[in-house]
Write a protein that binds this DNA or RNA. Structure first.
Length: 791
DNA sequence: CTGGACCCTAGACCGGGTCT
DNA sequence: AGACCCGGTCTAGGGTCCAG
């Protein structure tokens, strides 16, 4: 038995009752057995791979455990079956391993419990954080309300202040008015008293006058006499000074027609002594009458003044009443404002108290959150401690075998690091199984016809469907000399199969790059949750079939020689080949953009594109809307309606007022030809840089032109324009002989073909070349006859 | 018919899982 | 460790709808 690096241990088992070491290269047969596989390739802890054999078939089970074997196992040291001592040692190692496994299991359970507790704590923390958030939001709202209330209170206080000031001003005005009213009343009282005094004096005078009149009547003579001065003959006024009291007084008399009449005594006098009839001896003189008149006028003026004072007093009283009422209203308003201010202040106070309570609650929630976070942190630390303990156990058991190389892939849950992410992933699965749920699982590819079969790759799916379900599909491969050649082939395949292969993943190595393509209709339609309902679905529906299509390509590009190896399957599954789900090709897009920039009419572009495609494709259904989209995307303005008022034939430059007229002309004069001016003006360089399909189109046009000329001119129906050119062919009138024209066209066609041969020579696309040379053959047959046609 | 707004898809890049 | 391939994210550009 030849042993290599791999050593197998056969533990005691019921079926065999013996333990053996077997070579991996050895044929496993016979009884059920279990083997242990130690891999020393990478200096890692010995790995045990468990195999079981039942009924003659070998079944590979999952990788179970690392051994705790402290001694390296070398293949050269084991030459035969283990001795009893070796078996015993192995048994001890196994028991130690089992013990460590049990400890590890217990630690795992504890870790799991702690993780569950940590999860609960995290959830509670999260809930508390949410509550805290709500409390904070409510606090914020209340603070905003409080702010509003404060602002309203402030406004009301300012208004109240204004009202108070106005009230104060009105009170002052009212006070002034009252004082003025009081003064006026006092003045009025004085005037009234004076008036009253004058009236009393007047009454006395009247009585005296009456007494005098009575005396005159009795004596028949009327005289006014001064007690001190004799008055006679004429009206006079005397001032009698009563020396008894030292005060002057005025005596007024009137005398008319020999009788003495006492006039109304209205003037104010200072007379304090009554006049004695004995003192009046005769009628008043003219001077006395004049004096009496003046006194009367003064008396009238005083009465008018008294009246005005009374009216002013009344007006002031009314104003005072109004001011009082306004003051009362303002006081009432001020009272209301004060009450509102008080209410708002109370509300503000309540809001502040609520805010304070909420802040306190928020603080409590935060503290509880903090406490829970701290608890969570403690649990995590305990968890980490246990993990580290596990690591320490592994270390002490000499399980780990550290390498000198750098290990940039560190485990998030322990202190270990790895050289590759795959190793880290394996570590996470084996050491932190409870954490693996945090990482997304790769979905396998289910078989569409089986319920329990899941494949791991596109190729397996295709092979499974072909073998198990008799589907007509296969996996093929092909090699290309360049990436450009591969892209041309891919483009042709897409065109012929009405499909599209899109790239999603690229893997780059030092010397190779792999690019994975899959059918563009494969997969699920994904609409972002925040965009659901914002747009109607497409009329033709999504291009995604919500299923896995079997068509795929894997292109492996050799970065040294640039060759491309392609593994592919062109058999689609689960969808039809609707052109509506395809997009306009990039070449056509560029071509349309260029023609738009050159000012070509969109209708002509559409016609040219449609006519240029010999096979049905998405490009064949180019619409004006597509032209609009391209013009928008490339930021090229569309020609306006005014610019399209004249329709020019791009073959013969004839102009027509309507598009229908142009179409009628083209259908009669240029049947089967494209109207694109680009066709006849293109150079070989342009063609090389733009579109390798176009030489075919141009050759077709030239051939068609030659045919038309042959037909038209052969029957003598060619038309000449006024410039001497043959309409539609650009030939001079003087050379318009049918035979000469054909020769010219033949020459031009041959020149074109020679030009395009250079272009085609750069192409490696077999189908393209086949198509081109077929046209060349046709054209050459026309130009030079069948015998001169070249293949 | 036109232009704006907006959604959907392709493509690139990166990280991860599974199997050998 | 290598091979294979899936999923998430981001950006540019194509496609669609709609109002004027």
């Amino acid at each position: 038995m030849a042993f290599n690096q791999q050593v197998f241990l056969r533990p005691t088992e019921k079926s065999t009752n013996e333990t053996v070491l077997v070579d991996t290269s050895a044929q496993i047969s016979g009884k059920s057995q279990q083997t242990g596989h130690t891999d020393h390739n990478y200096g890692k802890p010995p790995l045990i791979k468990m195999y079981k054999k039942y009924s003659g078939s070998v079944v590979f089970s999952h990788l179970k455990a690392y051994t705790q074997c402290p001694l390296p196992l070398h293949s050269t040291e084991i030459k035969k079956e283990p001795t009893a001592v070796e078996c015993k040692f192995i048994q001890q190692v196994s028991e130690q391993n089992n013990g460590l496994t049990v400890s590890s299991h217990q630690l795992s359970e504890q870790t799991h419990d702690l993780a569950a507790s940590s999860q609960q704590v995290s959830e509670q923390t999260h809930d508390l954080a949410a509550s805290s958030q709500q409390v904070s939001e409510q606090t914020h709202d209340l603070a905003a309300s409080s702010q509003q209330v404060s602002e309203q209170t402030h406004d009301l206080a300012a208004f109240s202040q204004q009202v108070s000031e106005q009230t104060h001003d009105l009170a002052a005005s009212s006070q002034q008015v009252s004082e003025q009213t009081h003064d006026l009343a006092a003045s009025s009282q004085q005037v009234s008293e004076q008036t009253h005094g004058l009236a009393a004096s007047s009454q006395q005078v009247s009585e005296q006058t009456h007494g005098l009149a009575a005396s005159k009547k009795s004596t028949n003579e009327t005289v006014l006499v001064d007690t001190s001065t004799q008055i006679s003959g004429e009206s006079q006024q005397t001032v009698h000074t009563d020396h008894n009291y030292g005060k002057p007084y005025i005596k007024i008399y009137k005398k008319y027609s020999g009788s003495v009449v006492f006039s109304h005594f209205k003037a104010y006098t200072q007379c304090l002594l009554p006049l004695h009839s004995t003192e009046i001896k005769k009628e008043p003189t003219a001077v006395e009458y004049k004096f009496i008149q003046q006194v009367s006028e003064q008396n009238n003026g005083l009465a008018a003044s008294s009246q005005q004072v009374s009216e002013q007093s009344h007006g002031l009283a009314t104003s005072s009443q109004q001011v009082s009422e306004q003051t009362h209203d303002l006081a009432a308003s001020s009272q209301q404002v004060s009450e509102q201010t008080h209410g708002l202040a109370t509300s503000s106070q309540q809001v502040s108290e609520q805010t304070h309570d909420l802040a306190a609650s928020s603080q409590q929630v935060s503290e509880q959150s903090y406490g829970l976070a701290a608890s969570s942190q403690q649990v995590s630390e305990q968890n980490n401690g246990l993990t580290r303990l596990q690591t320490a156990i592994h270390k002490t058991a000499n399980v780990r075998c550290l390498r000198e190389a750098q290990k940039p892939y560190a485990c998030l849950f322990c202190e270990r690091a790895f050289r590759s992410r795959q190793a880290l992933s394996a570590h996470r699965v084996t050491k932190h199984p409870e954490k693996t749920m945090l990482f997304p699982k790769r979905a396998p590819i289910p078989c569409p016809d089986c319920t329990d079969i899941q494949l791991t790759s596109q190729r397996d799916l295709v092979l499974h469907l072909a073998k198990e379900h008799n589907k007509e599909m296969c996996v093929m491969s092909r090699k290309f000399n360049s990436e450009n050649e591969f892209k041309m082939w891919k483009s042709r395949v897409e065109r012929e199969t009405f499909s599209k292969f899109i790239s999603r993943n690229v893997a780059r190595e030092d010397f190779e790059m792999r690019k994975y393509y899959y059918c563009h209709r494969s997969g699920k339609r994904i609409v972002l949750t925040d965009r659901v309902g914002l747009r109607k679905p497409k009329k033709q529906g999504s291009c995604k079939t919500n299923a896995k299509c079997t068509a795929y390509m894997i292109a492996r590009t050799d970065l040294k020689d640039k060759t491309v190896d392609v593994e592919y399957c062109l058999n689609h599954l689960g969808h039809d080949f609707d052109l509506a789900h395809l997009q306009i090709s990039a070449d056509v897009r560029k071509s349309v953009a260029r023609q738009l920039s050159e000012g070509v009419d969109p209708d002509d572009i559409i016609e040219a594109i449609r006519n240029s495609s010999s096979k049905v494709s998405r490009d064949s259904f180019l619409t004006l809307k597509d032209i609009h989209n391209i013009s928008k995307r490339f930021n090229i303005p569309m020609p306006t309606t005014e610019e399209k008022s004249v329709y020019t034939c791009r073959i013969c430059n004839s102009q027509f007022k309507s598009r229908n007229g142009l179409k009628l002309h083209q259908s009669k004069k240029h049947k089967g030809m494209s109207s694109s001016s680009r066709v006849t003006n293109k150079t070989a360089t342009d063609v090389i840089n733009v579109d390798l399909d176009e030489p075919i189109m141009v050759a077709q046009v030239e051939a068609s032109t030659a045919e038309d000329v042959s037909e038209d001119c052969g029957t003598g129906q060619c038309e000449f324009d006024h410039m001497g050119n043959v309409d539609g062919h650009g030939l001079q009138k003087d050379t318009a002989d049918p035979s000469d024209m054909i020769d010219q066209l033949k020459k031009r066609t041959l020149d074109k073909l020679n030009t395009f041969r250079d272009v085609v020579a750069k192409s490696n696309d077999i189908s393209f070349l086949e198509n081109f040379y077929k046209i060349v053959t046709d054209v050459d047959s026309f130009a030079f006859g069948p015998k001169q046609a070249e293949g």
